[in-house]
Structures are given as structure tokens and as C-alpha cells.
Design a binder for these strands. Structure first.
Length: 577
DNA sequence: GCCGTTTTCGGCCCGACTGTTTTCAGTCG
């Protein structure tokens, strides 16, 4: 995420909060919110866009907000924000994230009861004065109390992999009783983290709902009805909805989202005299239903081709679907190899033979064994001598293997000065070389990565941002410069498929593809053969990054990959001369 | 505040639920 964009977005968000508290018209508030989302999603620094004049073409940013952006770039803040901050306590706006407590209620509590922060709010709930306000009552106050409890617990999102496991458990157990059943929401869009799980089914609602709430792993039943039930499975909320067969497509479309995608879609429907809801597509004129049974029907009725769930974030996919020009995304079942697996030669627990066997089982043509290099002492990293022993070992093993080839490799450490942890005369013996940063996560890594990219034997950068989801942010880095250099030196970006990495993240994948036409490799970074199965998480990131076959080496045959490696090495040696 | 092969003004996504209402406001997804 571009740091400056993030700061600007949060400032605009806060202005929206204050305006909402002030009672401004909702459209004005929404305009600021939308602009904040748009700016946050930009992969280019907002200052660059202003300089180049491209800012005028960014949807959702008009004269007024553009003026505030200029002001922000000039002064580091926005006068309107400072004024509003003088009018309302900042802490008050923060309370808006509490469920069941909206701006209207909060405004009245502030004006009539002097509520300025969470402590004040709890106090007026306890002493009953909030319930006495006009339009309020004990039930509303009770719901706000529940909202506060949730807020204090700090709702944790979960990894995509965790959510999929739970969703699949529910679906497997309900499948025998449903005509159709699948997961929807951010899970179906394969977002990197998931809040709660939405499952959609058709069939006999009573049977399905009964089975659902009595699943073994259910720890709490929150609600049970004809169309919607909610349970807790451990700390995770799972919602199940049962819909009619002829509403399956529109319901699936609606519940898959994203919200932004759906809003944009409905605007387009409206322009065409249509109305889109979870119940179907209707002609506004006579309220007749023209689609709803399948998602394809729904999109088609609005004049679009069906958009893969991973793209539904309103980042240009709707415009592309209107002209029938969606990317042909890589598919989950077309992976022909894994570019990053550790063996028991370093810190992995599986033998190279077992890794080969697993690769065969997964239907691969090749697997890249890349252990750690020597400076990773904790991981028993390989020095030059042991690495060359491993290369000899693999050469012999390859002669015995029939269906799969092991490519020799190393995950060589990029040292603090940008040099590599192994000499070139060792690296040149390998089929593939991945270079990764494993130290000094707080320092800007741009020059280190660029120096590594310029090495003639490097093929890819491993987990390029170094982030750990929920745990550690990316180190600061100038991705434009890195991608530019990677393009010049034919270096691929890894999409690391470990569930807590997913690195490169989807938005940078899209940027690297769109702006620099880079190539990518998915590596599971497996330390045990079981983890090789998680490659689908990497494919999900690739799809969310709009990748097609030509962008992703894993979809290529062994022959294509070897040809690519050979030509790239020749090119790079030429550059060196 | 943004936006325009219906427009430079007058619109702005759709529906459900809840609670406090006697016709609707607030909140949510």
C-alpha cells in the first residue's frame, strides 16, 4: 500500500465521519468515503497522479476533493478536517465502528448527554439516560451494549485458508440435503482475509437448517429461521441462507459482492431500465422478472459477460465485461509445477524423493527444490559445498523419475548490502534461483532488491514485500523502481502461497502486470509435502491480480519453462557485458 | 460531493430488520 495514499484516505474517511455526525446529506458523506476507497486502492502515489494530471480521470474525485488533495500534498493536512476536529471530539467519531450505533444516535447522545468517548457512552447506558431519549428505548440500548461488547473483543479476521476449511466442512455435511450449496461473500472472491463465512443453499429449508445448527463443531446458535440461520463455529460466525431455485443466481451474485461491485452493477442496470436485487433482474416498467436462475443469466441480462468472483471489486472489471474483454484468468487446475519447496536438506521435513512423489500425485511436470542458503543458520541453510552436493543428488534422482523433473534451486538470502549469500559460480550451476530478504524488515529494501535483481543468475524475488498478514507490514520499498528493474533484467515476482504471506499481494500483482508486464511464479514455500497442496491460495492471488496464462510460469509445460530459463539467462549475460 | 448518448441540475442501489412508531427512522449488508 502506498503510504501517502493510505494517510490521505484515512483523513478523508475521518472527514466523512464528522460530516455524518454533523448530519450532512448522505451523498456528500458517501462521496468522501468513496474517494477514500478509490485512493486507497490506487497503486500509484497520489502525488504522481496529481503531477501527471491523471488525477482528473480518477472516478469519484471531482473539483472539491481534488482541491483537498492538493492541500494535503502541500501542507500535510486538510483545513476542513482541522475545522471539523475542533467541532467534534476525535474519539466520538471512532465510536461509529460500534455495531447498532449509527451517526444519528451518536449525535443526539453527544448533544443532549455530552457523550464524548466510550466511557461516556457506557455511563449513559448504565444510568439509563440514553434509553430515555426520544426515539430510543431499552431494546435499542441493549443492542448498542452488545455492539460495544463485540467492539471491545476486537473482531479478528481469519486467513483465507482457515475460512475455506470451515466452509468446506459445513458444505460437505449439508450437501446430501441440499440441491445446490456453495460459499459466497469475500470467501468466494478469495480475499486474503475473511471476516465471516456466508453459505448459500437451495432445497428443503427445514431439513437444511436443522442439520446446520446441529453440526458437531457448532458452539453457539445465534439465529435460526426459514431463510437465514447463524451459528458460531469456535470464534467464527457462519451464516447460512436458503433461497428458491429460481433465485439462486441472483442470490449468489448478491451475496458474493463486493458491495462496491454490486452498487456499480445496479447503477448500470438502472440506466437500462432494469432493477437488480437478490431476487432477480426485473424490468422497472412492468416489474417483470427477466433473470435470476444462474449468475450467467443475471450478468447477461444487464448486458455483461459473467465476471469471475475474484475480480468483483469494482476495479475496472465491470467496464471490461461491458465490452466483452475480461482477462482469461489462470485456472486452479492448470498448475504444472511448484517453484518453491524446501526439503530436509535445510529446514523442511520431507525428503526430496517424497517431494517428487507428491509433485507427481499433484499432476505436475516439475518441482523446484529451493532450500535456504547459509546465512539462515536457524534453518540449517546450505553453503556452496552442500548445495552442489544436493545438485548432484538431484541429477541422479532425476534419472530415476519418469513423470516429473526436479529443478535445482536455492532461496538465496539477500544480505543487508544487497549482495547475495552465495557466489555466482555456485548460483550458475542451478536451474532456478530465488532471492529473498529475511532481515531488517523496518528498513527500505528497494536498493537491496534491485541489486539482487541485477545479478545475472537470479530468476525470481521470493515473498517480495516480506509482509506477514496480521503480524508484520511490508518493509518500505519503491515498487515502481523494483518492477521496472525486474522487467529489464527478466526477473519474475514470486506469489508466495503460504496463507500468512500471499506475497506479492493481489493489488501489486495487478500493478506489476498492468504497468510492467512482469512474469510471475507461484511457490508454496512448503516445508512439508502436505503444504504443497496450498498452491490454490497462490492461484487465488494470481486470479485476483488478473493474471492470464502468459503471465504465470506455473501454467507452462516443463519444456516451455526450460526454454524460458535458457533465453533469459542468455539475455541477462548480454546485459552484464 | 460527483456526474452526464436522458442531464451543467437533479438525481444518486436495493432490500431487510428492528424498534418505536400510528406511517417511519435508523442501521446493516
Amino acid at each position: 500500500m502506498v503510504e501517502r495514499n493510505k494517510k490521505l484516505a484515512s483523513l478523508l474517511d475521518r472527514i466523512a465521519d464528522f460530516l455524518e455526525l454533523k448530519g450532512e446529506v448522505v451523498y456528500k458523506v458517501n462521496a468522501y468515503r468513496k474517494a477514500a476507497r478509490v485512493i486507497e486502492a490506487l497503486t500509484d502515489d497520489i502525488e504522481e497522479l496529481v503531477k501527471s494530471g491523471e488525477i482528473d480521470r480518477v472516478p469519484g474525485i471531482g473539483e472539491s476533493i481534488k482541491g483537498k488533495i492538493l492541500e494535503f500534498l502541500r501542507t500535510g493536512t486538510i483545513k476542513k478536517y482541522e475545522e471539523l476536529k475542533a467541532e467534534f471530539p476525535e474519539e466520538l467519531a471512532e465510536l461509529l465502528v460500534i455495531s447498532n450505533l449509527g451517526p444519528k444516535t451518536l449525535k443526539v447522545a453527544y448533544e443532549k448527554l455530552g457523550v464524548r468517548n466510550l466511557d461516556d457512552l457506557i455511563r449513559v447506558i448504565e444510568n439509563g439516560s440514553l434509553a430515555k431519549l426520544p426515539g430510543m428505548g431499552w431494546k435499542k440500548v441493549d443492542n448498542i451494549r452488545k455492539g460495544i461488547e463485540l467492539y471491545l473483543k476486537g473482531q479478528r479476521r481469519m486467513f483465507l485458508g482457515e475460512a475455506l476449511e470451515i466452509a468446506n466442512y459445513v458444505i460437505e455435511n449439508l450437501k446430501p440435503f441440499a440441491t445446490s450449496i456453495t460459499y459466497a461473500g469475500s470467501l468466494r472472491r478469495m480475499k486474503e482475509t475473511i471476516g465471516d463465512i456466508d453459505i448459500l443453499a437451495t432445497g428443503n429449508w427445514m431439513e437444511i437448517m436443522n442439520r446446520f445448527v446441529s453440526l458437531h463443531r457448532v458452539t453457539d446458535i445465534l439465529a435460526k429461521g426459514e431463510t437465514k440461520s447463524s451459528v458460531m463455529i469456535g470464534p467464527v460466525q457462519v451464516d447460512l441462507r436458503v433461497v428458491k431455485e429460481d433465485e439462486w443466481g441472483s442470490a449468489l451474485q448478491y451475496f458474493t459482492g463486493s458491495k462496491e461491485h454490486n452498487i456499480h452493477l445496479r447503477e448500470i442496470a438502472k440506466e437500462k431500465g432494469l432493477k437488480l436485487s437478490e431476487y432477480g433482474v426485473f424490468r422497472i416498467a412492468d416489474n417483470s422478472k427477466i433473470a435470476g436462475r444462474t449468475e450467467e443469466d443475471v450478468y447477461e441480462a444487464i448486458g455483461l459477460c459473467c465476471i469471475p468472483p475474484e475480480l468483483r471489486e469494482d476495479r475496472g472489471e465491470i467496464e471490461r465485461a461491458m465490452v466483452g474483454d475480461l482477462p482469461k484468468l489462470v485456472k486452479y487446475d492448470e498448475m504444472k509445477g511448484d517453484f518453491h519447496v524446501h526439503s530436509n536438506w535445510s529446514d523442511g521435513t520431507s525428503s526430496i524423493e517424497d517431494i517428487a512423489k507428491m509433485a507427481e500425485e499433484l499432476g505436475y511436470e516439475y518441482v523446484v527444490i529451493s532450500d535456504h542458503s547459509k546465512s539462515m543458520k536457524i534453518a540449517h541453510g546450505l553453503d556452496g559445498k552442500r548445495l552442489l552436493e544436493q545438485v548432484e543428488f538431484i541429477k541422479k534422482l532425476n534419472k530415476k523419475l519418469k513423470n516429473v523433473k526436479i529443478l535445482t534451486s536455492i532461496e538465496v538470502d539477500i544480505l543487508p548490502d544487497g549482495s547475495l549469500d552465495l557466489p555466482d559460480d555456485v548460483l550458475k550451476e542451478l536451474d532456478w534461483v530465488t532471492a529473498s530478504v529475511h532481515t531488517r524488515f523496518n528498513e527500505d529494501a528497494t536498493f537491496r532488491i534491485i541489486r539482487a535483481i541485477r545479478n545475472p543468475y537470479i530468476n525470481s524475488i521470493g515473498h517480495p514485500t516480506g509482509r506477514l498478514i496480521f503480524q508484520r507490514d511490508s518493509y518500505p520499498a519503491d515498487w515502481d523502481r523494483i518492477f521496472e528493474e525486474a522487467k529489464k533484467y527478466h526477473v519474475c515476482m514470486e506469489i508466495n502461497a503460504q496463507q500468512d504471506r500471499l506475497d506479492l499481494p493481489d493489488y501489486l500483482v495487478k500493478k506489476a502486470k498492468d504497468d510492467y508486464d512482469l512474469k510471475f511464479v507461484i511457490g508454496t514455500d512448503a516445508h512439508h509435502i502436505g503444504q504443497m497442496r496450498s498452491i490454490f491460495l497462490g492461484v487465488a492471488v494470481a486470479r485476483r491480480g488478473w493474471l492470464e496464462r502468459e503471465n504465470l510460469l506455473n501454467t507452462w509445460s516443463l519444456e516451455e519453462v526450460e526454454r524460458f530459463i535458457k533465453s533469459v539467462r542468455e539475455e541477462k549475460l548480454k546485459l552484464k557485458l
